[in-house]
């Protein structure tokens, strides 16, 4: 395994007395796509939000290249670890503005045309109102927006759940492509095992706020992973 980009140790998080995460361990190797899989309510999205400190874990710690993220400036951390959500939530009246939103917050700049190309969109869309794009295109813009900050890692929270089958496949290809070309480390939340097989290098399985296990893709989708696959299939 490559060196670890992100490591989660004993993570806990609760809301109003309900434990959503209860001792989660997970390892995200540098330059690989790690899928977080589990039934709904398992704590997948919560785990992602704890990694970039959108929420404050009540116990345990997340390490970014060995440094506890609790000791980092949260704004700096979020620029280093980008995030893409289920819903694109774009800002501004043009695609260009939407792409540059995060970069401009920190006084930086980026080339919107190049970023649109990277995510497979025509740079001529830069002047369009983002609301006139299809949801699949909007999701690509939100990926371009995250890339504009030149992150070291990208968290993707079920980025295809609002898309139809064709758009879903295209985003999957884009994710693989970004990983191949840029070597970008990614954490990909999904509840779809066939999608995980297409996209991820390895996977972390969560259930009821606890980590159940971690597998390399090959191991999980071979005979050895049969029991784990049946465990998930029964609960997804």
């Amino acid at each position: 395994m490559a060196s670890l980009k992100i490591e989660v140790r004993g993570l806990g998080y609760g809301v109003c007395g309900t434990e959503i995460l209860n001792g989660v361990d997970a390892r995200v190797p540098d330059g690989e796509i790690t899928a977080v899989v589990g039934p709904s309510g398992a704590g997948k999205s919560t785990l992602l939000r704890a990694i970039n400190r959108l929420i404050e874990p009540s116990s345990g710690e997340v390490y970014l290249e060995g440094v506890p993220t609790g000791s980092l400036d949260p704004l700096e951390l979020r620029r280093r670890v980008g995030m893409v959500f289920q819903i694109p939530a774009l800002f501004g009246t043009s695609v260009e503005e939407a792409v540059l939103y995060g970069a401009r917050l920190s006084g930086g700049d980026a080339d919107p045309g190049r970023l649109l190309e990277v995510v497979g969109l025509d740079p001529s869309l830069a002047g369009r109102d983002p609301q006139t794009l299809s949801v699949g295109q909007q999701q690509r813009v939100s990926i371009a927006r995250a890339l504009a900050l030149e992150p070291e890692a990208l968290l993707l929270d079920e980025p295809t759940s609002a898309l139809d089958e064709a758009a879903r496949r295209k985003i999957e290809e884009l994710v693989r492509d970004l990983n191949d070309r840029l070597g970008l480390t990614m954490v990909f939340v999904s509840h779809d095992l066939s999608q995980v097989e297409r996209v991820a290098d390895r996977l972390v399985l969560l259930a009821d706020g606890k980590s159940v296990g971690e597998w390399e893709r090959g191991d999980f989708f071979s005979e050895a992973g049969e029991r784990a696959r049946r465990f998930i299939a029964g609960r997804l």
Binding site: E76, R78, G82, F85, I87, A89, L105
Partner: peptide
């Protein structure tokens, strides 16, 4: 909430 979270995830301060 999704918009506010998206902004925070891009390095926005609470105020922004």
């Amino acid at each position: 909430r999704p918009k506010v979270e998206a902004a925070l995830a891009l390095g926005a301060t609470s105020r922004q």
